[in-house]
Amino acid sequence: MNLSYIATLMPALMQGLAQTLKLFALTLIFSLPLGLVFTLGSISRVPPLRWVSRIYIWIFRGTPLMLQLFFIYYGLPFMGLTFDRFPAAVLTFVLNYAAYFAEIYRAGIQSIDRGQHEAAKTLGFTPWQTMRYIIIPQTVSRVIPPVCNETITLVKDTALVTAIGVGELLKAAQGAVNRDVNITAYAVAALIYLAITFVMTMAYERLERYFSRHQKKEG
């Protein structure tokens, strides 16, 4: 193992990393809000909305992510829906992570004291206004730790898309390992994953501090 060898690996690994980060970012951008839609559905007072949301969450949390990936990439073409590798990966991840986020949000929303709903109701808030101005803002600070935890899992889950041939970080490392019969690329990839999750952990600590500012006693 030497530095000049590692240097020759970097362009391919960086290209892979770019795909990994793109998948990561797109998944978050779409699944974080989509999760809220399913949360509101799953606690809705309209039975069909509730059941559709709950069945959706049940399916996507109850089956392996890899299987969902195969289903969407290899299975949907049989129903006339064909996706390229990368869009198929994004679609699967968004649908899967939305289900997890939905459950995290639901737990957060339902942990808010009943008195908050009652106070808002006596002040003339509609149920939707109560959600928007009172319940969801308080839920944010409560769900940040589990959501952050989930996104760290997401960083690592992105490696699964190697299975349908998306050229992300792990795939790039695998290519180099096979070509050179040298496992250095795996080690470098591992360090890159570690670096990403380390930076995220740091960022999340700050985020948690910011969102719990009203819980602290000051002055």
Binding site: D113, G115, Q116, A119, A120, T122, G124, H214, Q215
Partner: peptide
């Protein structure tokens, strides 16, 4: 009901607001 206003035993202030 907005002609009435309730003060609760447990206050029920909104903790995320000043």
């Amino acid at each position: 009901c907005m002609k009435t206003a309730m003060v609760f035993q447990q206050f029920n202030l909104f903790p995320h607001l000043t």
